[in-house]
Design a protein around this nucleic acid. Structure first.
Lengths: 200, 200, 200, 200
DNA sequence: CATGAATGAGTATTCATTCAT
DNA sequence: AATGAATGAATACTCATTCAT
């Protein structure tokens, strides 16, 4: 299709970058296409040349935002250290990712809400959740095999860890003071991990 | 103010009921006032007689939706049985509440997203979270005092339980198959509770 | 639906009148909805309250424009005079109707063109043609029965008269000088009628 | 101008062929330049290299479509057979031409409508009508001189024949079932011709 | 000659809100 | 209190045309 694929990809990213800034500032429906046009420095025609609707831009951003880094999965499974340590590292990495997304986190709910109406968006989020969940399953499985963790229901344990993390994001967005990631947040997760360890 | 206060309240509820149905179906943005008018069976003028804007309807719904039943708090604290049993009962009740809301759960994200823009909405949700959190704190505290639970960080433990529950809701909305409340969901919560118990 | 049907009908006519003026001036697609709004003296919202699209306005106008006056049919069949005289009178009336439509005639082709894409428009025009054709058939039939006309193929004769008239409109629109209705036009029609008369 | 004139002409025809297909399908207004680009298999730049606007394409098509074959005129005037026979042959040829245009006939109305706004288009159609009319005039004149036809008003007679044919096209486009060219159509024309013959 | 990315003025349509009755 | 007609600012999207390569 595109004569110059790199340029085409660059333009798309240029538009998505601008859109993310605008969406973070105004939310999905208060953001006007003209705002994205202005922020991107391109023309309206160009914007529509690359994306045929506002919805398509939202879907594309959700794809980029929830693209899972599969590499991370494999490396963590083979990394050194106890499973518990690596789980905590994973959580810390993810929290760091959230911090880097900065303003974007604010529109996380917009994506969640959009997912209920736009199948494309739902798929990307769903896949993201599933990948993260599978990583947790594998890690916990490893911990059990190594005798580091109790022989709990692996699926349930992964779901619990999963949920704690997601739930903390929800609460911190609604009530930022309630969750100090560095203290209360990590403590909550550690506590959940503790429950998986052997009692003695 | 109103000549017939009960009628007035009835009309308001009639409107809010209709609005919830429409919002759950279409989301806040795509829902038109005319949709609510039609769903309610009232006229547009009447709708605006009771609520002066769309935003006010959203706020009113969030108030109704997140109104905490304080009674439940006190009764649970004084109820019989182990703390663990009562916590599980609390979770079961809340899950039941969600089930009763059925299709309405879908608008949860809309409210979370709206909370970032509308202070009224945020306040109701925040208070809801805080009340629930405080109840958990009190219960866990009781468990520790009775020697039933380990002397963990009460705030962190409550936050963890809190978060698990909220996280499960998020996941179940995006990927309904991933969380079977009756099995995996409850297992995840039980596991988290287990972590709080004495090891022996 | 409408609380005040007369008012509703009045408003619709007000809009259609304005639309006809604008369409005659600019043609269908050069006419902007704003032009119709301005010409009508109403607001844009009101215009869309009564017609949900530009296309619907076009269809409504075509309905009004091609509404056949059935009364005329019956009266002509029972009127006095020779069939030939009455046919010529019919033609004269119709030509007069065209003159009264004045500017509207210019957009006749727009309707014909629209008919190929909008079924509503096509139906109204088709019905108009059919009604006119049936009247001609009845008149010619009468002429034959009275021995005034030759026993020709009635359908073919009506079609011929029909077509002459329609063809004259086409030519006069493209080349106004070519068809002087009062002279050449009527002469052409008289000639066609002559062909139906008895030779001797 | 062009390095290879034949190629240039070929490209132009390629574009005009594509444009006719698109115009017949969608009408002038709904047809987009991109549609013509796609149908032609060329690029947009190339299309604009040969025609500098959509209007110019429309005008060029009308020129091609309404170009009269002057040869036909002369040959028919010198051909053998009665005038009546030759007239009927002319009509049959023209009807055959229409059949060959098949789906293209639909754009006739678009051109008629366009003629009211674009002088270029009007001229081509007008000339076409005039040429055809003059041929009819000459033929009828010949018929009268040879004593084959009555000494009718030649202009009026030609106009009548002209109009019948044009009118039949109009009706057949709006209501294809109403005009079966092979039967009703030709009958109508024959009837008109009959009217020109001597009574005896 | 050919390409297709880039432009931006132009426009139909929507929908929250108001208000005369 | 109730009705539904009226309002108009706001906005996503289109598409003929241009131009750098």
């Amino acid at each position: 299709m595109a004569a110059r694929p790199e340029l085409s990809a660059a333009r798309k990213n240029q538009i998505l970058d601008a859109a993310m800034v605008v969406f973070a500032r105004s939310g999905f429906h208060d953001a006007r296409m003209d705002d994205i046009v202005q922020e991107s420095g391109l023309s309206k025609g160009t914007l529509y040349w690359y994306f045929k609707s506002k919805e398509e831009i939202i879907t594309a951003i959700s794809q980029r935002l929830f693209a899972t880094d599969i590499k991370q999965v494999e490396s963590l499974l083979k990394a050194e250290g106890t499973v518990s340590e690596r789980l905590q590292q994973l959580i810390r990495d993810r929290a760091q990712g959230l911090r880097e997304m900065s303003g974007m986190v604010a529109i996380l709910f917009e994506f969640y809400a959009a997912a209920l109406h736009q199948d494309g968006v739902r798929q990307f989020i769903k896949t993201y959740f599933q990948n993260f969940h599978e990583l947790l399953v594998a890690l916990i499985q490893q911990g059990i095999e190594r005798g580091e963790l109790r022989p709990v229901d692996v699926q349930a344990a992964a779901t619990a860890l999963d949920a704690v993390f997601e739930g903390l994001i929800v609460r911190s967005l609604i009530d930022p003071d309630a969750v100090q990631w560095a203290s209360l947040g990590e403590a909550a997760i550690r506590l959940t991990l503790d429950g998986l360890k052997h009692r003695q």
